[in-house]
Simulated scan of single mutants.
Amino acid sequence: MDRDQLQGILPAFGIRENISALEPLLHVDDLHQAPPQYKLVARLRFRQSPPLILRLLKEERSPAAYVQEQGELAAFFVEKGIPTVAPMKVLDGRRYANIPYQGHTLLAILERDLGPEITSASLETCALAGQLLGRMHAVVLENDVHMQHGKAIFDFAAGSDVDGGPMLRDVLQQHGCITEAGELHQLYQNRRKELLTHWPDLPHGAVQGDLSINNLTQDSTGRLFVFDYNCAGECALISDAVLQGMLFAREMDYPEEELHVTPRQRFSAFFDAYQQQRPLCAAEAALWPSLYQVMDAFWFMRVRYGADSLEMQLAERPDMPLDAWMAGVQARLHDVSIVV
C-alpha cells in the first residue's frame, strides 16, 4: 500500500491530519498464497501530532473476533494502570477497521507509538520484565479476565511453541534413531502426564502472550512498556510466567558486559521479581519446578533451530552416539538446583 491508500484508512479512526512521513517496519504480502496472508506494520508521522503505529492484517490465525478481543485486553490493562497501549476505536466501538484491498478484507489496527523497542535484556531488564508480567497476571486474576479466542504460545497444556518434547521425537526418527526416540518421548510423556494431572488446580486467565524485547520499550525513567497483543490468549498463569521467563533468560540479545551472567541467573531475576508482584498459590508453588525441569530437558532450541542443536549435530554426524545427550536430558529432568 502507498501513502495515499494508508491516508484513506485514518478517517475511520477520526483522524483527518495528513501523513507527513511513512516508515514501514514489517511487510508481508502473500495474498496470492493459500491461505492468503498479509501483514503491514508502519510508523505514521505527522507534522503536528505524535506518531502512530498502523497494523494491517489478514491472517488465518487472527480473525476479526480475536483481534477485537486482543484490543479489549490491552484496553483493560491500560485502565488498570499497566504501562501499555490499546488500539484506537472506530466510530462503532470496534478496535479495528475493515479495509478492502485487492479483493480481500484487511483488518486495520491503529495505536499510539510507544517508541523503539529495547535492544537487549540486561539483568535489570529481566527483573523489570518479570515485575511487569507479575502485575499483569495479578490484575487479570483479581478481575477474573479470560479470553475466548487465541492460543497462548506459552501454554504447556495446549502445546507451547518453546516445548521441544514433541519435536525431539520427530528429529530422532528422521535420523533413524528409533529406539532413542521412543525412550526419550516416554520420559517426556510421563512428566507431561504428571503435570497435566494438576493443571485444573492452577489459576488461568488472559495473557499478553509474548513479553520479548521485541515487544517492550522503555521511557526516560527506565519504566518498561509492553505492546503487541498478537499472541494473546487464555493460559495457566504459572505456565506463562515460567516459560516466558525461560525464553527471556535464554533467547534474547544480552549486553556484552553481562555475557558472564548465566541463563539461570537471568531466569531467577525475572521469576523472583514476578513473585514479588504476584505470589504463587500452593498448587503453583508445588508444580513450577517440575515444569521448569521438563522445559529445560526438552528446550526447543537445544533440539532444533539452535546453531548447536541436536538436529544440526545429527545432520553433520548421522552416526553420532546419543548416550551423552540422553544422559543430559535425564540430568535436567531431575535437577533440583533451580529451587535451592
Rank of each mutant, 00 (worst) to 15 (best):
W288T: 02
R264E: 15
T262C: 09
A273F: 04
D296L: 06
R266W: 02
Y274G: 08
F298N: 13
Q275M: 11
Q276P: 06
F267H: 11
D296R: 09
E257T: 14
E284N: 07
P263D: 10
Q277L: 02
L287K: 09
P263Q: 07
R278F: 03
R266F: 06
T262R: 15
R266M: 06
H260E: 13
Q276R: 13
Q293F: 00
M295H: 11
A273N: 10
E284K: 07
L291A: 11
Q265Y: 02
L259K: 12
D272K: 10
F298H: 07
V261E: 11
F298E: 08
E258F: 04
V261P: 07
A283D: 12
R278T: 11
M295A: 10
P279E: 05
T262S: 15
H260T: 08
E257S: 12
F270G: 14
Y274I: 06
A285Y: 01
C281Q: 10
V261C: 15
R278Y: 04
R266V: 02
C281R: 04
L287E: 03
L287S: 04
F267Q: 11
A285P: 00
L280E: 10
A282K: 12
L287H: 06
A297I: 09
A285C: 04
D296I: 01
Q293T: 11
E284Q: 12
Y292D: 10
A282Y: 01
Y292W: 15
L291S: 06
Y274A: 04
Q275T: 14
D272R: 09
D272V: 14
A283W: 03
R266D: 10
A282I: 02
Q276W: 00
Q265H: 08
P279M: 02
Q293E: 10
A297W: 00
Y274C: 04
S268F: 00
Q277P: 12
S268L: 13
Q265E: 15
A283G: 02
A282V: 06
A269H: 03
A273G: 10
E257Y: 03
M295F: 01
F298R: 08
C281A: 03
A283N: 10
E284C: 04
V261R: 15
E258Y: 05
L280V: 07
A283H: 13
A285H: 09
Q265L: 13
F271W: 07
A269F: 01
R278C: 10
T262G: 10
Y274P: 12
R278A: 02
P279F: 02
P279I: 03
Q275H: 04
S268C: 09
L280R: 09
F270P: 13
L259C: 03
L287Y: 06
V261G: 11
Q276V: 07
P263G: 12
V294H: 02
P279Y: 01
